[in-house]
C-alpha cells in the first residue's frame, strides 16, 4: 500500500519561540518539510508535516526528545476546478469513511490535499474506484 503517506505529527507548546525551536531542530536533523499545517488550541499546537524520508526523520527527531508520532494520511491531487473537494468528501462519506481533518497545500507539482481518515486503506480503495487517484510519497 504505497499510497498511504506517513505524516509526522508533532506536539508544540503554545509559547513564544517554541515553534521556531522545533523548526530549528528539524533543520538540524536535515528534515525538509514538503507540506504542513498547524492545528492549535489555546495552549498547544499539533504540527502535521509531510516530510522527505519520514521514517528516518522520525528516528532523528525522537532522539532529540520531540514528542511526536507517525500518522497515516492519504494525499490527492486537487484538480483545478470547483467542487473537487466536495466530490472527494462525498465519495468517502458514501463509503462510510470519516474525515478527521485535512489540509491543502500547493507544492511544485500543483495543489494537493492531505486527509486524515479513520480507515486510510478503505479510503484509497473507494477513491480509486471512483477515479480519484491517491498520491504516493514519491509524487508529492
Amino acid at each position: 500500500m504505497s499510497e498511504i503517506i506517513t505524516q509526522l505529527s508533532i506536539f508544540v507548546n503554545n509559547e513564544p519561540g517554541r515553534l521556531a525551536a522545533i523548526a530549528s531542530t528539524l533543520r538540524e536533523c536535515d528534515v525538509s518539510m514538503k507540506a504542513f499545517s498547524l492545528a492549535e488550541s489555546v495552549e498547544f499546537g499539533i504540527l502535521r508535516a509531510i516530510v522527505q524520508n519520514p521514517e528516518q526523520a522520525y528516528e532523528k527527531l525522537r532522539s532529540k526528545g520531540i514528542v511526536m508520532k507517525k500518522t497515516e494520511v492519504i494525499g490527492i491531487r486537487l484538480p483545478d476546478r470547483p467542487g473537487a473537494i466536495f466530490e472527494t468528501a462525498n465519495v468517502l462519506g458514501g463509503a462510510g469513511i470519516n474525515i478527521e481533518y485535512g489540509y491543502a497545500y500547493t507544492g511544485d507539482n500543483g495543489p494537493m490535499m492531505f486527509l486524515r481518515v479513520d480507515d486510510p486503506r478503505a479510503a484509497v480503495e473507494a477513491l480509486g474506484a471512483s477515479g480519484v487517484k491517491t498520491l504516493k510519497e514519491s509524487e508529492i
Partner: peptide
C-alpha cells in the same frame, strides 16, 4: 511534560487528557 506514548494527533484527545 507529556510522555511520547500519551501523545495523540487529535486535538480533542489532548484536550481530554488535560
Amino acid at each position: 511534560e507529556i510522555r511520547n506514548e500519551a501523545f495523540s494527533d487529535r486535538v480533542e484527545d489532548m484536550i481530554s487528557l488535560k
